[in-house]
């Protein structure tokens, strides 16, 4: 089994075998980050450009560290300090970067489909690091890796995803991935945050947190995008927290060995209470650690030699 694609644009187009190959490869990369010398020479002479049109700490740093631990040269470009502010289009930026011969371009963009457009235009491998409300494949891969490491499997697990499902690329990518791997997925959130046709993705829909997390193996809490408050999709943070905050009061409804996950950044006290985020069920920091390994695996699998 080898990964025969130029780009990683979404989980939707990946097969179960491809996902397994990526997760197995990532499992083997974990050990490198525990060494005293956290570097292997594998991608010497390769160049990875992180092109970020949206704010990011975790994902950008994670890709940068992943590249560096494989000895690739990594370069970060954020829109706010680039020629984007002078009005350069995405395509012109990409063509100019292409002319400098990188091997991989990692892109995050607020427009859904931006990475797909680039993938069709440039020779380099494109990795989608989040496009609008569409997909965030590396997040779903690191989430699946974390669940599999803790539970030993993905098949037949019950996973609840709670929050703003409609605007969440993390939720979409995870639903695609978890369903492919044989897990059952339930989603919950205020009606304004549940997309109308979500059942077609094979998930069950709940309007209350308590109902959604009953007897589940995994709870994924999504970040409430406070910047969306002006769109009137929820009345106030206080009311949202009263109905959908994961806390000591409701966590006992889930299985005793439930995993609590969050893609970050956390709004403490809004979608998750601090004692749960820092508590024994939480694997939030394992997710971050595994994120580096998943991105190392993708860089390794995508950067070929001569075609």
């Amino acid at each position: 089994m080898i990964l025969e694609r130029k780009d990683i644009l979404g989980i939707k187009e990946l097969s179960k075998d491809e996902i397994l190959l990526i997760l197995d490869t990532a499992d083997s990369f974990i050990e490198i980050s525990t060494r005293e010398i956290k570097k292997v020479p594998t991608l010497r002479g390769k160049t990875v450009i992180n092109l970020f049109y949206e704010a990011s700490t975790r994902t950008r740093t994670s890709f940068e560290i992943a590249g560096k631990r494989l000895s690739a040269d990594t370069i970060n470009i954020s829109a706010s300090t680039s020629s984007v502010v002078k009005g350069e289009t995405l395509l012109d930026t990409a063509r100019n970067l292409e002319a400098m011969n990188p091997d991989v371009i990692v892109i995050r963009h607020s427009a859904a489909g931006a990475p797909h457009m680039l993938a069709g235009m440039v020779r380099q491998s494109i990795i989608n690091a989040g496009d609008g409300a569409h997909e965030h494949p590396t997040q779903a891969l690191l989430d699946m890796m974390t669940i599999r490491a803790k539970k030993g499997r993905l098949e037949n697990l019950n996973v609840a995803i709670v929050g703003d499902i409609a605007h969440s690329r993390v939720a979409r990518s995870n639903i695609y991935g978890l369903k492919k791997m044989g897990a059952q997925v339930a989603v919950a959130g205020p009606a304004t945050m549940i997309p109308r046709d979500i059942e077609q993705m094979g998930v069950s829909v709940h309007s209350s947190l308590d109902e959604a997390i009953k007897e589940v193996d995994v709870i994924m809490m999504l970040r409430i995008q406070i910047e969306r408050q002006h769109q009137n999709i929820f009345p106030s943070l206080r009311e949202y927290a009263q109905r959908f905050c994961l806390s000591k009061k409701n966590i006992s409804l889930a299985k005793k060995d439930v995993l609590v996950m969050h893609p970050g950044p956390i709004n403490r006290g809004v979608e998750i209470s601090p004692d749960i985020a820092d508590g024994p069920y939480s694997v939030i920091l394992d997710q971050v650690t595994n994120g580096v390994a998943v991105r190392m695996a993708l860089l390794y699998l995508l950067t070929g030699g001569k075609a």
Binding site: M1, L3, L301, K306
Partner: peptide, 8 residues
């Protein structure tokens, strides 16, 4: 030299 990445 190869596009076939061996399993790690």
């Amino acid at each position: 030299k190869t596009n076939k990445k061996p399993r790690i």
